[in-house]
Design a protein around this nucleic acid. Structure first.
Lengths: 349, 349
DNA sequence: GTGACAATCTGTAACGTTTCAGTATATAGG
DNA sequence: CCTATATACTGAAACGTTACAGATTGTCAC
């Protein structure tokens, strides 16, 4: 309504956004030549190529995404698929920033595709694949037998998972070494004299549940400590639930003198539960927790922490997806992040 | 390379994703008719319309975004523009979820457009507008005189701001009533006998700095309390800096007996600083803090909190942008969120 | 029976891009 | 001088959609 195309359409001079036609007009070349010159095709003369690229830069030519996408099917989009209820908060922001960092000087855009509790986690994936909305996908909350990974593998759409699968299928992933984390945590606790340890693990359905559990139990037998079962809750449970269960546990005769916690928010709840039971952190019990931002030491200086860097994970995942899109072998795009040592509080200067 | 189009192109039968042509073939109608039937155009017969829509639903027709975008210029994209260094973590995830909630049953996608410290905040906006990458934009960290808002207003691109501007220009926004927050905080502190109050404010350049400050000082004079200046830091400073400055402040002869803090992470630092100085929260000093997730009470039960709901903000901002895109008057798309009362810790059941 | 008119439907062109199948020119070989 | 070949360029078609300008009916008044 508002846009009068009063000019004849060949007047590719100044008005709107420059297109290939504009460039063709300005250089006196054909649209095809311009297109090829811009992507360094071999059959274009060296000088022509330089000339076109110069003019393109001068007038700030940017390829029209819709045109490219319609013609080639390439969307230049990476989708990050998130569970809107269960993702860890800092995970979301850090991973987004990590991804952004990597795709910043590429033509890629990042779209966030959410799904909620009520939905099948496969739904958003199906949507993306069926509508061809992305060239690559990043998923989290990976399961040993993950239907999403299988689905995308079948359709040949590049993706990367945060966390590993265990289906005998090869795909890019980035994972934190939760086995090492749990084992180190146990060793540290044993080193300060703790003998009866409890683990607040990730939810059973996720792959890193067993990684964590294995690291925990292997190290337990290594150091000769014993486990106090604490598997009525996971880090996916509410703060209140974890707090209550922890308090219950700590009021028993045989109670843990050490905790390993797989998430910072859950650790707050554990500590609250410990204190609800009238016990004192650092005296009656020690807690080693993963954290993704440096806040737990402020919470209770007695806490022992291991850092997990989600921003790095985001960057790594983005690199993997782009790598796969770019033709690298999926098997070569897997990475594991080694945990820091267990960090105790140090007084600030 | 891999996609052989062996069939004649009219065989719009089964192979790929259904298009209008597929539907036209199946219904025996023209492409134009199908297109209009799907959008309930008036000149299509009632039965034809129903028939087309039925078939479309049956075979799962989804309009090709690139086609629509190329033809109409409509992207069906909302962009959330984020500062990758300074945004509050929970803000990012909650606002994304809030936006997602609202656009879930629309054709819109959410893209995240990041910018970093080094860049002009106007850069990402210019990019979005120049490349026509979004139908609507959401920005945060709003300033009284905000070049981004002015820029988008000039180009006529719909947007909504988290926080208000103060340029005499009308645009959609959602804001938390920080004036009321600070005023209520002061009243509450005065009510429990605190007389010398310090404010940890948002950074001066953001609009809600002065809202907060005004609420703070107005209520101070209302209750007859006095201000202990604490403006060498803002909530944008690092945890360490805030902690150190707080400790310094608390070691002075004339030190605050109450704090008002505009962000939860900063509050952790304030408390740490208070304790560094050998003082005790709840006895020597009280702190009222904003928080966006329910964790501060776990940190120190003596903390007094006011909740700010970022998820709601995200939803509200998305509604505003969509409203503007849909033709509503920008002035009718402004909302203010009223703070909860100051909440003290209650023991869980 | 004719004209007018409304109700339905349709073909063509265009959005910006890339690919396919060329065309034109120059160089070299015989 | 003619043909072959390489080099540098080009027009047309297509991706899926919508807008424009018709085209084909049927109905009704006269």
């Amino acid at each position: 309504m508002d846009r009068h195309q009063t000019e004849k359409d060949d007047e590719a001079s100044g008005q709107g956004r420059p297109t290939l036609k504009t460039l063709a007009f300005m250089t006196g070349l054909g649209v095809t030549t311009v297109s090829r010159a811009l992507k360094d095709a071999p059959e274009i003369g060296a000088e022509t190529r330089r000339r076109v690229q110069l003019v393109a830069k001068q007038i700030g030519y940017r390829p029209n995404r819709a045109g490219v996408r319609l013609r080639t099917g390439k969307t230049n989009v990476i989708s990050l698929v998130l569970n809107t209820e269960r993702e860890i908060m800092s995970f979301v922001s850090d991973i987004i920033y990590g991804v952004s960092e990597v795709i910043a000087d590429t033509p890629y855009h990042l779209i966030v595709t959410p799904y909620s509790r009520s939905q099948d986690p496969l739904d958003p994936i199906r949507y993306l694949v069926e509508t061809g909305s992305a060239d690559g996908v990043i998923i989290s909350r990976t399961q040993p037998n993950d239907p999403r990974a299988r689905y995308m593998l079948e359709r040949g759409i590049p993706f990367a998972t945060h966390g590993r699968t265990d289906m005998g299928l090869i795909h890019p992933y980035h994972d934190f070494d939760n086995y090492a984390f749990a084992a180190e945590a146990v060793r540290h606790l044993a080193g300060i004299g703790r003998r009866r340890l409890a683990l607040l693990a990730p939810p059973v359905e996720l792959t890193y549940h067993s990684h964590t559990l294995n690291g925990f139990t292997d190290a337990l037998s290594e150091v000769g400590a014993s486990e106090i079962p604490f598997n009525t809750v996971s880090i996916d449970h509410s703060i209140e639930q974890i707090r209550m269960r922890t308090a219950q546990l700590m009021r028993r005769d045989v109670r843990p003198d050490g905790f390993v916690s797989s998430a910072a928010a859950a650790t707050l709840a554990i500590v609250a539960g410990i204190e609800d039971a009238g016990l004192k952190l650092g005296r009656d019990v020690d807690v080693v927790s993963k954290q993704s931002s440096d806040l737990l030491h402020l919470f209770r200086r007695e806490l022992l922490v291991v850092n997990e860097n989600f921003r790095l994970a985001g960057a790594e995942l983005a690199r993997s997806v782009l790598g796969w899109i770019g033709g690298s072998a999926p098997g070569s795009l897997q990475s594991l992040s080694v945990p820091t040592e267990v960090l105790a509080y140090r007084r600030p200067d």
